[in-house]
Every structure is written in C-alpha cells, then in structure tokens.
Amino acid sequence: MGKNIMICDDAVFMRMMIKNILTKNGYTIAAEAENGLKAVEKYKEVSPDLVLMDITMPEMDGIEALKRIKAIDDNAKVIMCSAMGQQAMVIESIQSGAMDFIVKPFQADRVIEAVKKAIG
C-alpha cells in the first residue's frame, strides 16, 4: 500500500477525524495543513499521492490552493471537502481541476469510496 495523503482543513477536529478514517483503512498521512498557503508549501515538500482540501480556510482558500497546486503539478489529485450550500464553489473547483468532492458532515464510507476511486 503506502499511499500517502495530505489533509488540509482549518479545524483540528476535522483533520483528526479524517486522519482516523484514512489510517484505519490503510492509508498514511503525508502531511496536514491548516490553510491554503501551508497546503501549497507542504505539497511542494512532500508530493503526496492525494490531497483532501477543505474549501473554506483562512489565509488562502481551498480553491486558490488547488489552482496553485495544479500549476505546480498538473497531475495532482485533489478531492475537495465542502459544506452544504457551497455548490458554486465546488463546481468552480472541478473546473479548476479537482477530481471529486465530498460533503460535510463526513461519512467514513463515502470518504473511503472517493479516496479509492482516486488512488486505489
């Protein structure tokens, strides 16, 4: 296995929850970022196989971070994490290269389904 994933969300609680779901299913966590800026930095350092990106974050939001990451690495695989009612932003993310999206509140099986589809 050994697929590693970067988690970007400004809420510690959310990151922890996603981390738990992923590690229980055999994935490793490459890095965590609490805002878009850090997300882009860490992506450069760590080159994870997949990024889970929250849309609303301080400093730089998920969509901007997505665009920058895609600019660095066109093959970057990013799944957006959105809240209800963020439809327009989700669509914008997809247009900017996001592969998929999951809606909060998360259900473990949905998260894993999306991750599997992205990187196996």
Binding site: M84, Q86, Q87, V90, I91, I94, D100, F101, V103
Partner: peptide, 13 residues
C-alpha cells in the same frame, strides 16, 4: 446525494 448539481457536473465533465 448532497450536492446534486456538483455531482451532475462531474458526470457532464
């Protein structure tokens, strides 16, 4: 399915 519009958009894409 929550964000149906976005999901459908993915299909279209």
């Amino acid at each position: 399915c929550m964000l149906k519009g976005a999901r459908a958009f993915l299909v279209l894409r």
